[in-house]
């Protein structure tokens, strides 16, 4: 252990090193480190925000899809109800129409029968008048014997 002036030289050299490090080396290095830490923290925060907004959007999308599905169900229900109603209406209309047609046909048939009976009666009356004419040997005037003929016709009609 030989202590000599080397000590003084080493002290001065050491001081210079320390001061140089203090002034020129430490500040930029630590500054860069801290700035990067800041950037990384910001990046992580931004990533978190992005994640959160993604989740929000996903939730919104789910809501929209659910709404659309509900609406579709509603429309479907309405449509099936409406078609049922339409079918029922149509059935009802058809039944009514059928009954109406049947009634009309019956009425027509009845009217036809009445007409036929009427015509028959007239013919029978005419035949009866002609027969009576033949029996009497002379012509019966339809106008003079109208009352008689009418009575006859009414009797035939009753028969």
């Amino acid at each position: 252990m030989d202590i000599n002036a080397t000590l003084i030289g080493q002290m001065l050299g050491f001081l210079i090193l320390v001061i140089f490090t203090w002034k020129f080396i430490w500040p930029p290095l630590l500054g860069a480190i801290e700035e990067r830490q800041h950037k990384i923290a910001e990046g992580l925060a931004a990533a978190d925000r992005g994640q959160k907004s993604l989740e929000d959007a996903r939730g919104q999308a789910d809501g929209i899809v659910r709404e659309a599905r509900d609406k579709a169900h509603q429309v479907l229900d309405q449509a099936s109800k409406r078609s049922g109603e339409l079918i029922d209406d149509a059935k009802q209309t058809a039944i009514t129409e059928g009954e109406r047609l049947l009634t009309a046909a019956r009425a027509e048939a009845a009217a036809e029968a009445a007409r036929a009976r009427d015509a028959l009666r007239r013919e029978v009356a005419a035949l009866a008048v002609a027969g009576a004419g033949q029996v009497l040997g002379r012509e019966v005037d339809a106008a003079t014997h109208a009352q008689l003929l009418e009575q006859l016709a009414a009797q035939i009609e009753k028969a």
Binding site: F20, T21, F24, I25
Partner: peptide
């Protein structure tokens, strides 16, 4: 000691000069 001190200054000094936050 001088050589090692210079080596230290050169090493850390060049890193400090080029230090970026990237």
């Amino acid at each position: 000691t001088s050589l090692l001190g210079i080596a230290f200054l050169w090493m850390f000094g060049s890193a400090a000069r080029k230090a970026t936050a990237g």
